[in-house]
Nucleic acid binder design. Structure first.
Length: 313
DNA sequence: AACTGTGCCAACCGCACTGGT
DNA sequence: TACCAGTGCGGTTGGCACAGT
């Protein structure tokens, strides 16, 4: 049974007797009981019959976002984050549609993730989150790192393999080979002993206290900055991790992240993938500043607590 | 210890859509 | 066809938890 609410305050009573605010355990129990007995739908009727002083909409929302048995808790996995980035590039803010491809995740959760994590990065870069520049940043920095995490976790976490993704996008990556990411040295992290923590119970720990923030040294950042600020950016392969060079192969277009061929099936098969360096060119030229690369290299949100624990083992 | 700023997320709101009458 | 209730969806907000000072 999920926790009822973080709030201990008494929900506000409306003049019309309709309750608002956080749900109580009694309300949750009542709603769960009635949905189990009568099924979903007819929410207004259900609210009345159950004696819930809530609107039908409120009942539906509570059920779909919190009480439904198959709701998955905890941080989004790298696979899920990748899929969100991919699908958002295709469909935009179609949260419910995106959520359909992430079993157990709600549109609300995905929407919150996008607003709190992804858009935060855009703000820090002073660019629009839906601009081409930001898309390029995501494509060349964020997603490769996610890919690295995916490979690490796919080889060490069986729970990740249980997820059945249904990306409708035909994979183009099968034509490519990736340099094995497993040869990359693990990123140092500040966590020395959290091996007792699992994915499932990691939600109680904030990312801020656990994500590494300074895993790159000055020379590495300088190297990347020099690379990124050179003319005709990305005529060379993108610098990817520490002193490694990654040959990415996302095709750039104006409609998204160039991830049309990026399905979870291909993600799970990361390990042999290469691309032509010319395919990773910045359309708009020299736009990534040192400040931007620093910010992007601090996209620590992608590091999951549970995986860090594994990495420290 | 107290205060402040920030991140996060559950819940609400308004609008659009759909199906029944 | 028009109206209405129910439902779905995306945007927004309130407030708790936590980190930093």
């Amino acid at each position: 049974m999920p926790p009822v609410t973080k709030s201990m305050s008494i929900p506000i009573e409306e003049d019309s007797e309709l309750r608002r605010g956080p749900w109580t355990l009694e309300e949750d129990t009542l709603l769960t009981h009635y949905v189990a007995r009568y099924g979903e739908g007819r929410w207004n009727m259900l609210a009345k019959c159950a004696g819930l002083k809530r609107t039908g909409k409120s009942c539906r929302l509570r059920w779909l976002n919190y009480l439904k048995p198959d709701i998955k808790r905890g941080n989004l996995t790298p696979q899920e984050q990748l899929l969100i980035l991919e699908l958002h590039s295709k469909w935009g803010n179609r949260w419910s549609k995106i959520a359909q491809h992430l079993p157990g995740r709600t549109d609300n959760e995905i929407k919150n993730y996008w607003r709190t994590r992804v858009q935060k990065q855009a703000r820090q870069l002073n660019i629009e989150s839906n601009s081409k520049r930001f898309l390029e940043a995501v494509r060349c920095f964020w997603m490769p790192r996610l890919l690295q995490k995916v490979e690490q976790t796919s080889s060490s976490s069986s729970s990740l393999k249980e997820i059945s993704y249904q990306s409708s996008v035909p994979s183009q990556l099968s034509d490519c080979t990736y340099p094995s990411l497993s040869t990359f040295s693990p990123l140092p992290n500040k966590i020395t002993d959290n091996s007792n923590n699992s994915f499932e119970n990691s939600s109680s720990v904030t990312s801020q206290s656990l994500y590494p923030t300074d895993f790159m040294n000055i020379s590495e950042q300088t190297q990347i900055s020099q690379h990124l600020t050179s003319p005709i950016v990305y005529a060379d392969p993108c610098v990817y991790n520490n002193n490694q060079i990654l040959n990415e192969s996302y095709n750039i277009d104006s409609s998204g992240y160039g991830m049309e061929g990026f399905s979870l099936a291909s993600i799970s098969a990361v390990g042999s993938y290469e691309r032509s360096p010319s395919e990773c060119q910045m359309v708009e030229g020299n736009w990534i500043s040192n400040e931007m690369t620093d910010t992007l290299w601090n996209m620590d949100d992608i590091w999951q607590f549970g995986e860090l624990g594994e990495m420290s083992n």
